[in-house]
Structures are given as structure tokens and as C-alpha cells.
Amino acid sequence: MSPETEISGPAARMPDFLILGAARAGTTALYSHLRQNPSIFMPSAKEPNFFAFEGEALNFSGPGADYVNNSVTGIADYHALFSDAPAGAVCGEASPLYLYAPKAPERIHQRIPRVRMVVILRNPIDQALSHYLYAVKQRIEPLEDFSAALDAEDERLAAGWQPLFGYSRFPLYAQQLSRYFKLFDRNQFLIRTYEEFQDDPKDVIDSITTFIGADTSFQPDLSSRVNAGGVPRSRLFQDFLMKPNPITGMIARVMSQELRWKIRDRLSQFNLKREVELPDRARAILRERLLPEIEDLEYLLDRDLSSWRA
């Protein structure tokens, strides 16, 4: 059965657009803002990761492995994510692993070759630090020294730890986008930066809404700050929020996952220190690994990214 045949019919909706990433570049906030628009349908479960792992038996190890191991890998389950979409709605989903995963571009091209794709890129060095701080906030990063975590990347990934722990590998944007550009027309991509999103979120949301063909007259509430990172002031309190325990288990029986996570993240915000300096050694490691990528990305996109190299 061809991909086109598989996705035909009202019970087999597929996305009209994908938010490919990058990770820690505002994709959770973007997802939250776009879902407010009545003309846009996005599944309540963010990051199904289908095209990253389609058909695979997942068995990642290490801290937080369940996040990846619980990804949607079957086409029927993926179709089901969009089964409640109203007629005429623009359907989409957000999985930042799509930019990172080597097999994702080919799988997307096979299933939905005319899909529109949104990419938000962040200064790679800032992104790597933010990814580390996110893992610290989630209490899945056991190392308190970012430099040590960078040194441990190869060993961890070789041991089957989930991709998140390749902190300096996630922001290899030039390599990642090149895989997509070999298969898709450039006009299928809208590429903005995290800095643009921070400076003028309305402009970025408006440009995306126009790009995906949704209702541009609707203006979402942009006041909430979603999924922010930081270092916990109290590790004990953060462990209580992020790790399974009898109290959170009881709450899970009576409250939806989406609402639980919203409350958890709100409480977590009060326990986080926002301003975190990048250690000198970690900065040196990241500059050595990532500066060539920034230069390659400037050439690939024909865009001045000199501020990222500063």
C-alpha cells in the first residue's frame, strides 16, 4: 500500500505542518500559542516523535529514557492523534527530535511529501546550555558540572542513553537542515530564530499562521512563559515535583497529564534560578565543536549569524 493510499480517508488524518525544532528553542511555547487558534488542531500530547522512530522497537536506557521509549511508533496510533480534528482545521504537531533524527526527513517525505515545516533555531551554544539546564531541572542529569556532561556525551550515547544527552550534537543545524533540503523544496520551510521569537513573539506567530494557512485574524494570549529552564534552588523540592512519588501518583488518578504538567511547571518556576553562567571550560568545548556549524549554517541559509559567534 502506498503512503498516499494509507493516509486517505477521514479516519486517517495526517499533519499539514510540522514544527521540527530545534529543541530548547521555544517549541513548547510555540505549540501552546498555536493550539489556542480555533482553526489549528494539534494533539494534546506534544512530541509524539513518530517520524524519528517509526517502526522501531525503542529500548533507550539511562535517566529519563521513558520519555523517548513512549514515543508513537505505529502509523495507526499516529493517525489516531488527529482523529478528533474538526473538518477544515489545519493539523500539526511539534517534535523537536525531527530536526535531530537522521531518518526523520526520509520518513516525512515518504508519508507527507507536501507538508509545511516550521523551524526555530537558537544560538547553538545557548541551546546546548539550555538543554543541560532542562535535564537538571527534570532531575535526570546526574552531573552538576556541565563540562563533565559534555565530556560524557560519547560514552552515554554509546551506552544507549536517550538523544537528549548529546548536548553538543543537538544544535548541528547545518547538517540537520541539509538532510531536509535534499528532499524538500525550500518553500516548504519557514525558518525563524529564537531571538526573533523572544523579541517579537506576535510577529513570529503571525508569520507561522500565515505560512500554514490558518486563520490569521485570531490573536493568542502570549503572556505565559512555558517550559523555562534553570537550576533548582532546592533539589529536594524539585525531586518531589519531577520524580514519581505516592502523592503525585494519587494526583495522576484524578487529573489529566496535561493539567498535571502545567501545575508542575508553574510550581517549578518558583524553585529555579534563571541566570546561569556558562563555565569557561564548557564554553571552550562548545565553541570548538559548534562554531564551524554556525559558519556552515550561514552559508546554507545565506543569513548573517555573526551575533551567534560573538
Rank of each mutant, 00 (worst) to 15 (best):
E6M: 13
R287Q: 13
A52V: 04
D16N: 12
D126N: 15
R111V: 06
G230F: 03
D215V: 06
F211A: 05
V136G: 03
E155D: 13
F189D: 07
G88S: 08
E275Q: 15
D206F: 06
L133M: 12
S307W: 12
M255W: 05
V204T: 13
K46M: 03
S8I: 11
Y31Q: 02
E277C: 10
A29I: 09
K103W: 11
P292D: 05
L190K: 09
S234A: 10
S32H: 14
Y98M: 07
G88T: 00
L172M: 12
Q127I: 03
A228M: 14
W308A: 09
A282P: 02
P113Q: 13
L121W: 03
L267V: 05
L297M: 09
S178Y: 03
K46G: 04
Q110M: 14
E47S: 09
A284S: 15
A104D: 04
L297S: 06
R139D: 05
F197G: 04
A174M: 09
A94N: 00
I212T: 09
R266D: 01
Y67D: 04
D126I: 12
H109K: 15
A128D: 09
Q269T: 02
S307N: 14
R235S: 13
S32G: 10
Y173I: 05
D185H: 14
Q198T: 14
I7N: 08
Q176D: 00
R233D: 06
R274M: 09
L20C: 07
G230Q: 05
N59Y: 05
D215Y: 06
A158L: 14
T27E: 02
T248P: 03
F53V: 01
N227R: 00
V68L: 12
Y134E: 15
A29G: 13
S256G: 05
S71D: 07
F165K: 08
P244E: 07
D151T: 03
G230V: 07
E153T: 09
L30R: 03
A85E: 02
R122S: 03
L222D: 02
M42L: 11
T193Q: 08
G26C: 01
N37M: 03
R309Y: 01
R233T: 09
P15Q: 04
K46I: 00
G74A: 14
V68T: 14
H131R: 12
D206C: 12
I263H: 04
I208N: 10
L172Q: 11
